[in-house]
Amino acid sequence: MIENKTLTNKDFLGLKSTLCTGCGHDSISVHIKKALLNSQINPKNLVKVSGIGCSSKLPTYFSSDSHGFNTIHGRMAPIATGIALSRPDLKVIGLSGDGDTASIGLGGFAHLIRRDVPMVYIVANNGVYGLTKGQFSATADKKSTSKSGTENPLPPINLCLMALQLGCRFVSRMFSGDPKRLVPLLEAALAHNGTAFIDILSPCVAYANHSGSTKSYDHIQNNQSSFQDFNVINETDAHTWDSEEQKTYDLKLNNNRTIKISQSSNDDINDKNKAFLKLLEEDRCNIPTGLFYHNSGLPESKKMEQTHKSFLEKMKNSKISSNQKISHLNQLILNHL
């Protein structure tokens, strides 16, 4: 189809969105398309997996030439794990929501992170169950209110904090209305060699965009602290501009490009402890957004997966190929029992 040619916008088109006008999720699919285009990822080698909920409708809105799988509520993580581990030749994007991940799918999320499954894991986080019309999700802030005015009595689950604690090597949060930083972040996630987790604050215009909500457009815009700048440059232009106040990190991308992330020299993108502190200090009036922690090193288990043969090769070279006969089953059993 599109081997060896430059991919264009058209290659990443999806179906028309069926979400509410103004939904944060629609900007997410736009930004994903842009990131895929920038990264020149062949749609044929991409798969999109989701759970159930408004967020999980996203895979139909981009890259129709990629296989997609809208699974069941809370099970995106294990199903994507099965896909990613049996098909290391594919790039997997998992799309989930705060209900799908932080409530019904919390176990699967935790264990996917533990396994460092090579994929991009996106949570479109709006603190509310949209399809069932406005119940609080597990990421809604304590004392934030529903559209009808009910106060949420429970504290939120901080998915970034959990991911960090569980060993994730790419932990990030971004606002859906921040394309300047979200697109390069998505590109960096697509280039990451393990689980790249992105918590995307993505307001629900129907049920969580009122004054009592801490996941509304206004609240996020007024209270997010974007502690990093993102610049994408071609390899040839590479230069750093570290100063006393600013420190810059290079993240290599797929097609000879580099993201330069600059932040205060008090921060350190490779320092897990600093990431913990930043996340522990957050509250409803201080919502940090950026790449909290990044570590490109391969853990031992990961190296084993990397050596795993690609699917097609495996099918071709498998010890048991088509119609092969197994001789002397009896002897085989006796020898290996």
Binding site: V49, I79, G82
Partner: peptide
């Protein structure tokens, strides 16, 4: 779930 994903 993983089994289904692998089969898919």
């Amino acid at each position: 779930g993983m089994t289904l994903g692998s089969n898919w």
